[in-house]
Amino acid sequence: MLVGVDFGRDPDFDDSLDELALLASTAGDEAVARVIARRKAPDAALFIGSGKADEIKALVLGHEAEAVLFDQALSPVQQRNLEVHLGVPVSDRTGLILEIFAQRARSHEGKLQVELAQLQYLATRLVRRWSHLERQRGGIGTRGGPGERQMELDRRMIEQRIKQLKIKLHKVERQRDTQRRARARGGSLRVSLVGYTNAGKSTLFNALTKAGSYAADQLFATLDTTTRGMYLGEGVPQLVLSDTVGFIRDLPHKLVDAFKATLQEASEAQLLLHVIDANSPKLHEQWAEVERVLEEIGVDETPQVVVFNKIDALPAHQQPRSALDWVERPNGTRVARVFVSAHSGEGLANLRQLLARAALDEPLIPDVPPPSAQPDLFAPPH
């Protein structure tokens, strides 16, 4: 069962819960019902209040739901109280995203990053949720004073493992730094694909480089950074293209921290290809969220090309007026805008042309008239 709570403060509140349903599906769950609650503030004990909790409990029983997923972050106490009240496991958006990341991680680095994020999340949730967290007795046989709580043992083991993982990830970061410096010495332009999850970054990456990376119509289909050289023609320097993990609304800070080594590819890039799903009904919200994350990791001033993907899925009346033009980002800078379909190949020649200009250190803003005064369906959010 999916539950969203509208506190009236979030203009991007998803009252359809479509994204949460897609997250649940990606994790292997099936949504049997959706509930929207409206409150002025979260309830300290049950987040949604006892009355709404009783209503959800009845729905859980009626639909025979096996779990309840909240679209907002729950405190450890709220999660524990809700599980006791509802009688089924309860997870929040952060826990669900972590579960998906755990399923998707393939490389050694990715698995380390996911484990670190999961342990940091779990460390805050050792609040007597399990019956084995009872006080034990120390000493030999029946002698000796009271031992420490199993909960404290668990916390200590988690803290030790977190330290070990941070040391290992620090080594990974150093290795990546060495690889980046080697590429920089080679003089190749470093380009990174960024964008909202499921915008088609990996499909576009494969279309441009023939890399054969895993791509699927699902959230977080790939987590591991893939880097390939890209040939753009005679007389054009080769560039290095990297595919990075997708962003999502309310991306947990634990994940941003844990995936620092992966996101470092974007921070070291000399050009960002911001891939946007042109067919998404949440296009502007997703654009704004990616801009927010780019600012958070300190790359909002890096030169960009805005790539609207999946134009083959647009109906005729929504097709762009021009396949290549420029647009003004929310921060006021002008960037080239290109419309493509990574699936059909439409528009990729224009994108390759822009990348070739970047590799030759030529201006990227195309020599075309400014966007017309007519309403632009693909204008940036403000």
Rank of each mutant, 00 (worst) to 15 (best):
G246N: 11
L116A: 02
L241E: 01
A258Y: 00
G62K: 13
R106N: 12
R329A: 14
H63C: 11
N350L: 14
R104W: 09
D367N: 15
Q319R: 08
G8R: 10
T197Q: 01
S16V: 01
I365E: 03
E83W: 05
Q78F: 02
S75V: 10
Q286A: 03
D71P: 05
R80Q: 10
N206G: 10
P330W: 08
G246H: 06
W287F: 15
A211F: 06
T226S: 11
G139C: 02
L377Y: 13
L360T: 05
A349F: 14
T227P: 08
A24N: 04
A323Y: 11
L126F: 06
E289F: 10
L17P: 00
R249L: 08
V127S: 01
T244Y: 06
G4N: 03
Q150F: 08
I311A: 03
Y231K: 15
Q78G: 03
S213H: 08
R129Y: 07
L219V: 09
P281L: 01
T226C: 09
K254I: 14
Q118A: 12
A44D: 14
E173F: 12
L133C: 05
L96S: 00
I162F: 00
L208R: 03
E64N: 15
P237G: 06
N331Y: 08
E265Q: 14
R183G: 09
Q179M: 11
A37T: 14
S322H: 14
A67F: 02
A266Q: 03
R128H: 13
